[in-house]
Amino acid sequence: MDRVLFGDNQFFGVNHMSEEKARAQAMRFQDTASIVQVLEDAYAEGIKTFMCTTHERIAEVCEHFRANRQRFPDYQFYPCMPYAHKYANAAAELGVLGALRSFLPEDNKLGALFRGGVSLARKDIEGLASLLIDAEMKMFADLQTPVIFLQNVATDFLLGLGFDEAFRIFASHVRERYRAEPGFITMNAPLLQRRLEKAGIENPIICANINKIGFRMCGGMQAYEELIAQGRCRLVAMSVFASGAVPPEQALEYVCRFPHIESIVFGASSRRNIAQTKQLIDRLTPR
């Protein structure tokens, strides 16, 4: 993984600190061209990986990078799925099973079986998960997706249930079908790492909040720092600025202190901010 990854919260009105800022960002990025412009700015600063949700508007971004392959030959996407709101909204309207049915391809044999309500054998849930993953991956066709993440809402929901088998199913499908490394986004990294290891997923890629003030680091900062020190997983630090609560230099000094943190993902909207953050990370990263 690259040292610096570019995130997408700012493009979709997600701001954990202020609804007004979130709305202003949603207005600014209403047009996909303005998203693409920021990604190109980041590319020019040397950030060549876009870690993004499978939001329907990302499909247009994908289209741009497919069409301009010559200009961005080494550009890669780290898809993060599922785009939870899509499923949550469908589940509120259609119920859990109805929502799942609505996302399955209609002409598929397994989809038909599932829609018929046939009771589940082991293979069915694996097949169902594969179908859902494939549906989410469609927009990335012909693009490089060397790491595919399970979103934190899904990871942590399954983690709470104790549905560890789902992690194995996700990991093996992503490896076999897409030749990609599975990644897991979580707000409960220490617990997740133990359970992934138990499920036989060794040295997994885990993306979690890692910041100086312990914001959304469930299990506590000490458990996180121990997890980092153990080096039993490949860590991507997110929310390093804790939504702006920690000044950039301090925030990055904290994260760059840990040699076992492989990558840092951040989102920004202006070229200046992107450049400053990238340069700070480069400067603070021990060689």
């Binding site: 600190m17 809402v153 942590d156 409960n188 617990l191 003030i213 680091m217 469930c218 804790a242």
Partner: peptide
Amino acid sequence: RYTTELTRPVWFYVRGE
């Protein structure tokens, strides 16, 4: 003041403290 400074940590997080 923001939620980042006001919110107390929880033991487990799924979709909001």
